[in-house]
Design a protein around this nucleic acid. Sequence first.
DNA 1: CCTGCCGGTTCCTATCGGAAACCTAGCCTG
DNA 2: CAGGCTAGGTTTCCGATAGGAACCGGCAGG
Lengths: 126, 126
Amino acid sequence: MSGFGSGDPFLADCPARLAVELIADKWTVVVLYGLSKGPVRHGELIELIGGISRKMLTQTLRRLEAHGLARRHAYAEAPPRVEYELTQLGATLIDPIHVLTEWAVANGDAVLDALDADPEPVAHSG
Amino acid sequence: MSGFGSGDPFLADCPARLAVELIADKWTVVVLYGLSKGPVRHGELIELIGGISRKMLTQTLRRLEAHGLARRHAYAEAPPRVEYELTQLGATLIDPIHVLTEWAVANGDAVLDALDADPEPVAHSG
DNA sequence: CCTGCCGGTTCCTATCGGAAACCTAGCCTG
DNA sequence: CAGGCTAGGTTTCCGATAGGAACCGGCAGG
């Protein structure tokens, strides 16, 4: 426990908060989930992740790369082929991401249910 | 485990994805982390969470409320007092959130390090 | 030459998000 | 009674960002 801890997620300017902000993003979580299976091609991720655009995928991957969580490997072939994979640091995120996604799978219905039951009053029709 | 699962986080239009999008948000994670300690007042959260504005806090709490993860309790007193706490559904998120924040605390430095080592080329000064 | 494939990037706009002011409501002060 | 304090919330203003559609570029095939 000695040298550990990069601050507290509550503190705005500490590495822990930076790390939270890095991964607590809707696309980032899904992309990491996609990467957690092993090396994947850009196009595969596009197919895999419903609703993501090429731009957002590239952008998200670049961010992961810049923060040391993913690595990009471009094969100098034709047609071009680019694979992404988690780095060793990124691999430490597999568990947290899976815990999160498992929660989502297990409780998505309940969330949807609650949302459905609580439709915020939109203003009366009169 | 039989009837479980509200889809796959990869699918754009399933409850699992909705759930991911609900919590995979920078403020949401930190607010949930704050709520995980038990009932908290709005003002306490403001003090606790560095950098959050009242607007974002209220907005985030409202979203959690609407999705059944948090509950708001306003005491009809003076001065006004409002407490927020996790619902039973929200409490199931404590573990995932803690796993995430613990990862952030443990690896924040490494992330910062990688970011520092990879300063994206900004265009040469010439 | 034209076409298609793959990955990436540019353009443009709707939305997000922060700062700060304003609002409500009850109590205390004078 | 007028004014100010506290605590939570909302509004306004405006810059930053998200995100889709469309375009770019190299190479193989016809």
